[in-house]
């Protein structure tokens, strides 16, 4: 059974690049792409009612409608969705942002473009099924 990852990214280029890295680490994973914060919440809520949540959420911070922080807070506040592992993604690294994300319950914090290496670096904070799905470093 392949890993299901929800990618929230408004920039299509960035989304494609993130897909490269995600597919590199999680071989054969299924990536569902949404392009704004509200879509994240509606998708997840719908899933929570039916077929179940994805395995991982990769969440861009700077997004229209609802930004990453707002989505993060909403998810962690929801009983159904709080357990979903989330990796926050940002264009420009900032220690303050990083700390804030971890404090709010994010499992990882990555600077774009996401590289396979940096993605693997934050695997440890992810739940075992996700970790298990990660392909060993090829090189």
């Amino acid at each position: 059974m392949s890993l299901e990852i929800l990618l929230a990214e408004d920039n299509p280029d960035h989304a494609e690049l993130s897909c490269f890295a995600l597919q590199k680490v999680f071989d054969g994973c299924r990536i569902i792409h949404v392009s704004h914060g509200e879509a994240v919440l509606s998708f997840l809520e719908e899933r929570a009612q039916g077929e179940g949540l994805p395995d991982l959420l990769v969440l861009d911070i700077k997004m229209p409608r609802m930004n990453g922080y707002e989505v993060l807070r909403a998810l962690k506040a929801s009983t159904d969705l709080a357990s979903l592992p989330i990796i926050m993604v940002t264009t420009s690294s900032d220690e303050g942002d990083y700390r804030a994300c971890l404090r709010l319950g994010a499992s990882g914090y990555l600077v774009k473009p996401i590289k396979a290496g940096s993605l693997r670096d934050c695997l440890q904070a992810l739940p075992p099924p996700v970790r298990a799905a990660a392909r060993e470093r090829t090189r």
Partner: peptide
Amino acid sequence: SHDLKAPLVTIEGFADK
């Protein structure tokens, strides 16, 4: 700087690819 970074991320990503 943030907005400049976004295309740069794209450039960097695809260049690396």
